[in-house]
């Protein structure tokens, strides 16, 4: 392990908070999720293809991939925030069976966003209203999400701020008076107001410096200790290594590997050649890039999308590998680990 100290505390996937049943359903079950955008002239761009994963209570799943691989589109699909020319397929079930992809806008707006899925945004500066103080924004979120009476709002807002480690003394400031780290915490506090069991963080560390990346990641991770699940989307492998229970690697719209973080970042390492290449490119490892560029989503090859850049590619790669056992590859670098 070369990517910095790990956070202490329980890190097994599916760690249950005290008082819940061990056999509880996953908080989120995604199956066969695809997203495509309709273009002029009846063409389509497939941005997410047949993605599937499960997220247990208290688990942290990190979705990694380079820009334009479709990971942010996947997040938008889960929140129902895709533009009008987007079409979806598959299912994304919450624990009570509500399908996020089939639910109408009214249901999503009134019962899902903020209440069952809290969004930690990519750019807190753009997410916060510049003309109002953090406190007034938190109190508004409390009113909208919990309907608490006026007297209770102040306390609820301060409680949310405290959980996000946002200092109470800064609550009456405007967003532009906050540092990058504090703005990120304010945005996290907003996401925590509704006490959602699932947090979705879309590139929460972009543009932050290394110390702040670590702190933000640790703070997000801390919220999973009380049973919340975290789905984090990032291109930053160091942040992923720090907090993930499970890693999903996305390439050209597909999840190509889904693995426990300990095996992925430790020994024997990832099984998919793309994931191995990504890790090898880190400055703390070999610092050698993968050859070539990812294919455009509008012109995906019929076979394995990574074959053109893959050192292990062979004739079999002309056919698309199926995603089985957490991997979509004809020539995995490491054999399938024995099940305990």
């Amino acid at each position: 392990m070369t990517t910095g100290p790990r956070t202490p505390g329980p890190r097994t996937p599916g760690t249950q908070p005290p008082g819940t049943q061990a056999a509880a359903r996953p908080v989120l079950r995604v199956h066969g999720l695809s997203v495509r955008f309709a273009l002029r002239g009846g063409r389509y761009v497939e941005a997410v293809i047949d993605a599937g994963f499960e997220l247990a209570a208290g688990e942290c799943l990190v979705l990694v991939g380079e820009s334009g691989c479709g990971k942010s589109v996947l997040a938008s699909a889960l929140l129902g925030l895709l533009p009008g020319n987007a079409q979806t397929a598959g299912t994304a079930l919450l624990d009570d069976g509500l399908d996020l992809l089939a639910a109408d806008e009214r249901t999503l707006a009134r019962t899902v966003r903020g209440r069952r899925i809290g969004l930690v945004p990519q750019s807190p500066a753009a997410h916060l209203t510049p003309v109002r103080t953090v406190r007034s924004q938190l109190e508004e979120a409390v009113r909208e999400l919990t309907g608490a009476p006026r007297a209770g709002r102040r306390a609820a807002a301060e409680a949310a701020a405290a959980r996000a480690a946002f200092p109470t003394g800064h609550l009456d400031r405007h967003p532009h008076e906050l540092s990058g780290g504090l703005a990120q915490r304010a945005a996290t506090a907003l996401a925590l107001v509704g006490d959602a069991p699932l947090l979705l963080a879309d590139e929460p560390t972009t543009g932050l410096d290394r110390d702040l990346v670590h702190r933000t990641a640790d703070e997000l991770r801390a919220h999973t200790r009380d049973g919340r699940s975290l789905l984090m989307i990032t291109h930053d492998l160091a942040a992923a290594a720090r907090i993930a229970d499970t890693v999903a690697v996305m390439y050209a719209g597909r999840i190509v590997e889904l693995a426990p973080a300990a095996r992925f970042f430790g020994a024997p390492g990832p099984r998919h050649p793309y994931a191995r290449g990504l890790l090898a490119a880190l400055p703390e490892r070999e610092f050698t890039p993968l050859p070539g560029n990812p294919p455009a989503l509008s012109a995906l090859p019929p076979g394995c999308a990574f074959a053109a850049r893959c050192p292990a590619a062979g004739p079999a790669c002309a056919e698309r590998p199926a995603f089985t056992g957490g991997l979509a590859c004809h020539h995995p670098a490491v054999p399938e680990p024995a099940r305990a």
């Binding site: 009008g84 979806t88 009214r106």
Partner: peptide, 21 residues
Amino acid sequence: ATPPEAAPVWRTRPGRTAGAA
């Protein structure tokens, strides 16, 4: 021979943007 990847059923979210568009 190709198990789960049947043709996906595409849908646009009802009520969100199709009508407005």
